[in-house]
Design a protein around this nucleic acid. Structure first.
Lengths: 234, 234
DNA sequence: TCGCAACAGTTAGAGACTGTAACTCTTTCG
DNA sequence: CGAAAGAGTTACAGTCTCTAACTGTTGCGA
């Protein structure tokens, strides 16, 4: 996409940007967001300090780029998993998609924490991460096409139905994944699914279950099954 | 506890420590962990830079202290909520306790994020936070005394039963809150409850549901009800 | 083919921060 | 009352972000 090789200069520029990001990702993995330091990256690339500002406006811009990439990457992983799915088994679909998210996160915890971790109060995410977030969540929605929400989640479904009625953009997005009339349930399922996923994967990835006698996949499976139960899914 | 006033010097020392922590908390609220800076605190206290190192060994030590306080505070809030509870209604118990956690977190998001947010790779929490974590989670366990786990959570219960069999400390802890034989279900309930709570509250507090058409309490209630359903609680 | 604008890189340096060293003054206490 | 412990100071080393001002190099249009 966006044309591979333009001028040789532009190509070299892209290459350097990529190298910078690679090193930044390594620093991120080694010491978290705080450990990403332009000066050290520069030293490693063989440039001297301020030269990096030719490639990224600021340290924040670099991190933003990493966030964008991670979101897109996760969305792609989920999309790939959604490709080979049997439409008729909603519960299995949820397990497969949630499992794909978890696998992605466990394989590269630092990147998951980057997009899902504690936000810096001042920082606002780039608007296109919202698109990516929708791309991640979208494939979950069809699972709720024939949902029969239980008492427990009905208030949630009601609020989401109302939301869809007010916000045409969201309504349209829901309708792209689910037959008319099921928007409320689908949105509720999406939000609750995202919540369960965030809970299980977030705790696993941040190591808070270290030394406890359960495995991450069992925990996630239990959460997803409970969700499926709440919506009466097969 | 630990004797209020000893020498006047010790008292003054405690007072200064408290003042430092207060300012640190304000900085935390304003700009997240990264915004807590000893030099700026010193300026505000009226001391000059290095003087703060008389009170805290390092910036990390200060943050650790804040974490310890926050944990203890949350545990206290949950303990208080657990005080006035009807033993016979497990589902209501879960809602009350989870609601107490959420209220605490929503009232002071920065402190919740401090203890529950992204960990710094190098950092290891002080061991007594584990006690506090148990103090937070303990009151949830009695709700699962008469649980009848559904298919969905049974693998989880099995793993936790096995864990209790292997780790006598954990088994004893569970038995302090629940009759013999229910340890597995109680531990599973605790872990799943913590997961649901973390998912719902974490997303709410970090503002990721901004502009979505649901409220934090409805989301949490749905999660907790689903959990209660999974364990066949009244 | 030449010339110049855009680009890539440099050094110097300001300003914020953490943390150490060495030193002075004050309190406490035996 | 005198010495040790404590509270504070300045000076400084080192890391980091980012700006300013300057130099060399590319590439493209006339």
């Amino acid at each position: 996409m966006t044309a591979g090789a333009q001028s040789p200069r532009a190509r070299y520029r892209e290459q350097t940007r990529a190298e910078i990001k690679d090193i930044a990702l390594r620093q991120l993995a080694e010491g978290g967001t705080a450990a990403v330091a332009l000066t050290r990256i520069a030293k490693e690339v063989g440039l001297s300090g301020p030269a990096l500002y030719r490639y990224f406006d600021s340290r924040d811009a670099l991190l933003t780029d990493l966030i964008r990439d991670a979101y897109a990457d996760l969305a792609a992983a989920v999309g790939r998993a959604a490709g080979a799915l049997d439409e008729s088994r909603p519960r299995a679909r949820l397990h497969a998609l949630a499992g794909a998210c978890r696998s992605w996160a466990v394989a590269q915890p630092h990147r998951y924490l980057l997009i899902q971790g504690t936000p810096v109060p001042g920082y606002t995410a780039p608007p296109d991460t919202l698109d990516s977030a929708r791309a991640v969540l979208g494939p979950f929605l069809p699972a709720f096409a024939a949902a029969e929400p239980s008492e427990s989640v009905r208030p949630m479904v009601a609020q989401m139905t109302e939301w869809a009625a007010k916000d045409p953009v969201v309504a349209e997005w829901a309708r792209a994944h689910v037959p008319a009339g099921a928007e409320g349930a689908a949105l509720a399922g999406g939000v609750l699914g995202w919540t369960s996923l965030h809970g299980a994967v977030g705790l696993e990835v941040s190591g808070q279950f270290e030394g406890m006698g359960h495995t991450g996949d069992t925990l996630l499976a239990a959460q997803i099954d409970a969700l499926a139960d709440s919506f009466g899914l097969d």
